[in-house]
Amino acid sequence: MTRTSPTRGRAAGAGYALPAVLFLAALFAVPLARILELSLHPVDGTGNPLPEFSLVQYQRVLTEPFFAESLRSSLLTALLVTVLCLLLGYPVAYALARTRPGVLRTVMFVIVVSPLLTSVVVRSYGWVVLLSANGAVNRFLVATGLADAPVPLLTSYLAIVVSVTHVLLPFAVIPLTTALGGIDGNLRRASQMLGAGPIRTFWRITVPLSLPGVATGALVVLPLAMGIYITPLLVGGANRPLAGLRVYSQITSVYDYPVAAALSFTLLLLTLLCVTVLGSGFRFWERRLYG
């Protein structure tokens, strides 16, 4: 091989990314542009898009409670799920980070990522089995007298939160484990040598230094939770007030594609807004922390 100049090397590097770029352009950017275009058309009485352009679909999305409520509910649910994932994931990540590589750690890790390794149908069916009228939870509630009759758990808000948290938990645990594992153990020891006990050391040293992992976890889990619909669909049915489910039902049963497109786009913008706000918030914090 002959010598290559740095610029040529860089150009060659960009060339390697070309297949992925083409793939994304064809399968992501083009459909996205198509949906945007679709969302700008009014419809006739049967839901067929009319040729002229208008913002009427966005007006419907923001004013009709059926859509507006679902956006609000998706946002609040996503925030709740994000917080739950971080709270539940933190101790797990802490344990993982402090376990030496070996069989135990591998087993722990496989358990953590098991929701991702399971098919969404199997996973959701598992929740159905647990939460249905004659499922394990209801039988326990009735047997212990905590409830007189089976509680409709499957269609409850709780079922959505629990099942979505379940599947998104690994996305919080993985960055948290990386961040916690990257903290120099001598910092903890230094804190102890300066008189701080384990609890104070945890709050003063470990937690602040794991903040980048918290930020990454939140920035991954939140968008996923905003758009999630298959898990809540399979667990609680299509009639739950989540934006993703509303898009789904508009497409599969109402056949109003333009309003589905407008709702999709509004959800996307809302998600981008949340990620931006959250991301800059974390960046601000990190800059305050590290100078």
Partner: peptide, 22 residues
């Protein structure tokens, strides 16, 4: 006695300064 109650000081080889504090 655990390290934080011994009242000793320790300077680490890698200094172990807290990066998030001034």
């Amino acid at each position: 006695v655990p390290p934080h109650r011994r009242g000793l000081g320790l300077v680490f080889q890698n200094y172990a300064l807290f990066p998030h504090l001034t």
